[in-house]
């Protein structure tokens, strides 16, 4: 589904990604771990098409197509979803209006009519219940005044609405209490099926109790320095990253 080859990217003059290679197949969940500043969020932003960073070499092939020249919205239409580490507030725009605009552009791309008001509301209600959000959140401005946990649940709500092929979740567990972590974790886990895939970026093993990865990659200084199975998370939790970094160096 996704093949990243020798990806280099920089922000300003600073090279952040220094040759990433990653292959994700349908049905798989990949976790990316690593110390602060390793480039995890940059990798997520690069996949989603953020324009404040520049890809200097390498390729990203998604479902057989090089997506590097595509805009963020085109990538979304093709089924890429980024769950933000810091979801953005949009004062004055309701959650429902936001999702309606998004869903209808997706439908337009698929040659479908806009969703009727009734079907849309039904869908919102269903997906909000899925992440245990009160339906009053649909009329509230996007992320405005939301707690950390509510923002992350809102990300999973949006993911449930858009039903992406590839979800990239950038530290969906940061700033969460135990309940919110369970809701986000089980939510993402329930959305997983054999036709989609997820890349979960996290610092901690605890999210991976809910979202069980097939592979764990350790990102360090812009490169993946170790890939192993899910048991690696436990080892990182206990021993930190130094032993992996030492092994590498």
């Amino acid at each position: 589904m996704l093949k990243i080859t020798n990806l280099h990217a920089k922000i300003g003059d600073k090279e952040i990604l220094k040759g990433i290679n990653l292959c994700v197949k349908a049905g798989e969940i990949h976790a990316i771990m690593g110390p602060n500043g390793a480039g995890k969020s940059t990798l997520a932003a690069t996949l989603a098409g953020r324009d404040n960073l520049e890809v200097t070499s390498g390729s990203i092939i998604f479902q057989g197509e090089d997506i590097l020249s595509l805009s963020p919205e085109e990538r979304s239409w093709k089924g890429i979803f980024l769950g933000f580490q810091y979801p953005v507030d949009i004062p004055g725009l309701s959650n429902a209006a936001f999702m309606k605009a998004a869903i209808n552009e997706h439908r337009q791309q698929q040659g479908l009519e806009p969703l009727s008001a009734a079907s849309f509301l039904k869908m919102v209600k269903e997906k909000m219940a899925f992440v245990e959000m009160d339906s009053s959140f649909s009329s509230r401005a996007v992320n405005v005044g939301f707690s950390g946990g509510e923002k992350k649940r809102n990300e999973v709500f949006q993911m449930a609405m858009l039903d992406p092929r590839l979800a990239i979740l950038d530290e969906s567990d940061s700033g969460l209490d135990v309940d919110a972590l369970r809701i986000v974790g089980t939510g993402v886990s329930k959305l997983h099926h054999p036709d989609n895939a997820a890349i979960v970026i996290t610092h901690y093993q605890r999210l991976l109790d809910y979202i069980v990865p097939d592979f764990i990659h350790v990102l360090y200084k812009g490169r993946i320095i170790k890939t192993a199975g899910k048991e690696l998370a436990m080892e990182i939790e206990e021993r930190g990253y130094d032993w992996i970094i030492n092994e590498e160096e």
């Binding site: 098409g49 919205e73 979304s76 980024l82 933000f84 949009i90 998004a102 552009e105």
Partner: peptide, 22 residues
């Protein structure tokens, strides 16, 4: 805000319009 909206599939023109309207 623009990138957030675009990452959900809202086109750049539409995202700008939404921001201006809001």
């Amino acid at each position: 805000e623009l990138f957030y909206m675009r990452s959900r599939g809202i086109s750049l023109d539409e995202a700008k319009k939404i921001q201006l309207k809001v």
